[in-house]
Design a protein around this nucleic acid. Structure first.
Length: 504
RNA sequence: GGUGGGGUGGCCGAGAGGCGAGGCAACGGCCUGCAAAGCCGUGUACGCGGGUUCGAAUCCCGUCCCCACCUCCA
């Protein structure tokens, strides 16, 4: 089966064939760094992180680019507001902060949020402010081609002329006539209200640091333009996939496509859009107050569970957050981890036995023991998992395969079938890797090896005492020890070969 | 008004003409000294009304409702 993706532009699921064999070029929209990341940003990043990991798993070489839009109206507005006399600063917005400081600060907050959830960095993360010459060149090409014009009112703006581009609306299949005019649109020097800004002439109130020289006067780029300029700079005029949130389809991606296509670029071959995150069925919004930030999620659950939750739905579906969602994800994750923990012990034993057997055989024959032969194969994923991922990245289906393997693995453990355990262990491990779940950093408290070692010795002493009590059928003492450990957040599990402990 | 996507069991969430994906929760059983974990089993789920079909959650017609975008948005 071939890889297939739903392409927004054609509104169909199509076979995905890379433009260059063996390689994939991916551009997906990151953030306009004007505030703290919210879960929607993070979901999108996780979706495309899984996509990249999967494509790489299938042997493709992926070049991924995610923009940082670090200059725009909102950033300037927020910075300007911070200098106001009646400005009330809060933890996210200090007083008197230059726009570039604000943007850079939030850029780092995004990087932190991504890293906390195991989102790998893209190949490159270009900033809009670093690509002004590319944007100016693109505008010039559009003017030369007759698709853009400097504003007639001397404002220094340059607009894309929607009516000069018959294909306008092709991405979202909308007719220009049907579009509602923006109620508060400032017509300024536009020929048509639907024309959008490529370049915004500097206003007297703009800080000098937020203006660049151009053939049309000092100013700054409009939204949309940076993505066209940066994607084609790093990926070529025609690249494989352009991604982003569903809400970016219009106008952002529609305009990107128009300006790039009108300039003569082939642009994106596939458009992938991820669904929104809702809170109990409603879109999260600050005014309703039904928001939850990545930070808050991380306070409630382990990063791995948060990643599992944000990645578990199909990427095109709306993902609904509920107060119980993270607990459920935590339970699912723990089930997988519990199997991997127990399975690892069995697999390690099995390896050891083989090495011993090989050593004995080597002594007998005088040959050296071949060790490479016994290295577990972590390289292949079950066919059903592959089929699910190839079918428009059907992660929910893929997770079903993962959970099936966990159950089968647990049964094999119970049956003492070590070879089967090894196989399921390998399957689960490789699926977990593709989904990036093994790559999520644990919270700092859980990753101090010295502390963990000390704790292990102390708990083992307790468990030994309990084992002795159990051997003597002194249940009161045995249960007392277990209760004490439980009160300290240590869960004890008995098994045929002794007790295991883990932190709650 | 235009465009796109939906309504699936207690909850989340795939699927898309015929064997009830999967997770979470619940209940019963096995295992266990008791637990925990694990395993097995249970629930007659597809908004509503018609139709097509041997057979429909899946196709067709009608109808109700929801969400997103059209203004900044992942």
């Amino acid at each position: 089966m071939a890889q297939r993706f739903y392409d927004t532009r054609t509104a169909t699921v199509r076979d995905f064939v890379p433009l260059t064999e063996g390689e994939v070029s991916l551009y997906y929209c990151g953030a306009t760094v004007q505030g703290m990341p919210h879960v929607g940003h993070v979901r999108s990043a996780i979706v495309f992180d899984i996509l990249v990991r999967w494509l790489e798993y299938t042997g493709l070489q992926v070049t991924s680019v995610r923009n940082v839009t670090d200059i725009d109206d909102k950033i300037l507005e927020k910075s300007a507001a911070s200098y106001g006399e009646d400005f009330e600063e809060d933890e996210n917005y200090p007083a008197d902060e230059p726009w570039f400081a604000l943007a850079y600060r939030f850029e780092h907050e995004f990087a932190r949020a991504y890293a906390a959830l195991g989102v790998r960095r893209p190949t490159y993360e270009p900033r809009a402010t670093g690509h002004i010459p590319e944007m100016v060149a693109l505008i010039q090409r559009l003017i030369d081609a007759g698709h853009a014009y400097p504003a007639t009112d001397g404002s220094g703006d340059v607009y894309f002329e929607v009516n000069s581009w018959p294909a306008y609306g092709e991405l979202t299949r909308q007719r220009v006539e049907d579009l509602q005019d923006a109620p508060d649109a400032d017509p300024r020097g536009k020929r048509d209200p639907r024309d959008f800004a490529l370049w915004k002439g500097a206003k007297g109130t703009d800080p000098a640091t937020a203006a660049w020289e151009s053939p049309w006067g000092s100013g700054r780029p409009g939204w949309h333009l940076e993505c066209s300029a940066m994607s084609t700079k790093y990926l070529g005029s025609h690249f494989d996939i352009h991604g982003g949130g569903l809400d970016l389809r219009f106008p952002h991606h529609e305009n990107e496509l128009a300006q790039s296509a009108a300039a003569g670029d082939g642009f994106a071959n596939f458009w992938l859009h991820n669904g929104m995150v809702t809170y109990a069925g409603e879109k999260m919004s600050k005014s309703v107050g039904n928001t939850i930030s990545p930070e808050q999620m991380l306070e409630q659950a382990r990063p791995k569970a948060v990643r599992y939750f944000l990645g578990q739905a199909h990427y095109r579906s709306q993902l609904d957050y509920r107060p119980t969602s993270l607990q459920e994800a935590e339970a699912a994750i723990e089930r997988i981890e519990a199997f991997l923990d127990r399975g690892a012990d069995v697999v390690a034993d099995l390896q050891l036995k083989r090495e011993e057997a090989a050593a004995v055989a080597g002594t007998l024959t005088g040959e050296e023991a071949p060790d490479a032969v016994y290295v577990a194969q972590f390289s292949s994923v079950p066919t059903a998992f592959r089929a699910a991922m190839e079918d428009d990245l059907n992660v929910p289906q893929a997770l079903a395969v993962l959970h099936d393997a966990v159950r089968a693995g647990n049964s094999a453990l119970a049956a003492g079938d070590e070879d089967a355990v090894e196989q399921y262990y390998s399957d689960v491990q490789s699926m977990v890797e593709v989904l990036g779940l093994d790559d999520v950093p644990e919270p700092e408290s859980a990753q101090d090896p010295a502390a963990h070692h000390a704790l292990d010795i102390l708990i083992r002493a307790q468990l030994d005492a309990r084992a002795a009590a159990r051997a003597a059928k002194d249940w009161t003492t045995a249960d007392g020890i277990r209760d004490t450990l439980a009160a300290a957040g240590v869960v004890v599990e008995d098994s045929a070969d002794g007790a295991r402990w883990s932190l709650q």
